[in-house]
């Protein structure tokens, strides 16, 4: 390979990159970000039609909306089937056996230890949250799909729902006034209150904020690293880098399987923990 051909390739790559985005990493962002078109293998792109604004908000379904709905439908179909199997017999079969492990895990390892006796009220929310995120994370690992859990809007919306659950759980257990009183720890000197009250109120909002950022960042990081590793082949302009790139990309991909599980667990676990802290304020 001579210097000319290398520079030719580089020019081609750079040109295509220029088309994809403003910066050199634009094409990566283009891939992991939301968009108004869905890429189908070997078939090209489907453009989603624009919907009119509702109250000044653009509610046109995007790529992430489509995959979110696919994930929701998959969750629904899966657990409808599991429920059907349980209705016919209490003995778990293949599918129900597999998902029972996770359901029991969420119940016994997440909900019960953090929520105590009040856990059955919050269990449906936690289960839905866990499996929605889990299916979303895994759906994103399939080629040509998109990871809707790596969109900050999605994670923020989920965090807002968790925030509401936390506040409602606290108010439900302690009453509105009792809950607000309980936000400030007991035994704090009176003169510290002007400092403590803003800190505690800020603390209420940092929890879901951290939830949203954690899931978003974790899910987007793996994809970005994979794309960057594969992009190395084109940036270096040589095929000899490919084995290294692919090996690392596969490693990151496997890591992402782990991360998918862990992040679904963490999001659910922390939500449950925060609800538990709001419900049992004394501790």
């Amino acid at each position: 390979m001579n210097a000319d051909s290398i520079s030719d390739t580089l020019t081609t790559v750079t040109d295509s990159l220029q088309q994809a985005g403003d910066t050199g990493s634009g094409w990566i962002l283009h891939h992991v970000m939301d968009g108004k078109e869905i890429e189908l293998p070997f078939l090209g792109y489907i453009h989603i039609p624009q919907l009119p604004l509702v109250f000044g908000i653009d509610v046109t379904p995007t790529k992430h909306v489509v995959f979110m709905i696919i994930a929701a439908v998959l969750v629904f179909l899966t657990f409808a089937a599991v429920a059907r199997q349980y209705k016919s017999s209490l003995i778990p079969k293949r599918l129900s056996n597999f998902f029972e492990v996770m359901i029991v895990f969420v119940r016994d390892e997440i909900a019960e230890p953090t929520l105590g006796k009040a856990y059955p009220i919050y269990l449906p929310y936690l289960l839905t949250l866990f499996f929605f995120i889990l299916f979303g994370n895994f759906l994103g690992l399939i080629p040509f799909s998109a990871t809707f859990t790596s969109n900050i809007a999605v994670t923020a919306a989920l965090a807002i729902l968790s925030f509401l659950m936390i506040q409602l759980g606290g108010i439900r257990q302690n009453g509105l006034i009792g809950y607000l009183k309980g936000l400030v720890p007991h035994g704090i000197p009176l003169w510290l209150l002007p400092l403590m009250i803003p800190v505690e109120i800020l603390g209420l909002f940092t929890k879901p904020f951290a939830l949203a950022i954690r899931l978003f960042a974790n899910m987007i990081a793996g994809h970005t690293v994979i794309l960057a590793l594969l992009g190395l082949i084109f940036f270096m302009g040589t095929i000899f880098i490919a084995p290294v790139s692919v090996a690392f990309a596969v490693f990151i991909y496997l890591l992402e399987i782990l991360v998918s599980l862990i992040q679904a667990y963490i999001f659910t676990m922390l939500t449950s923990l925060f609800i538990g802290m709001a419900v049992h304020q004394e501790h």
Partner: peptide, 22 residues
């Protein structure tokens, strides 16, 4: 818009699953 979609999808999923599955 995506946030609205998420909230709507999630709450629908929660309500349906609560009744049908959980």
């Amino acid at each position: 818009g995506l946030m609205i979609w998420t909230v709507v999808t999630f709450i629908l999923l929660l309500l349906i699953l609560k009744k049908i599955a959980w």
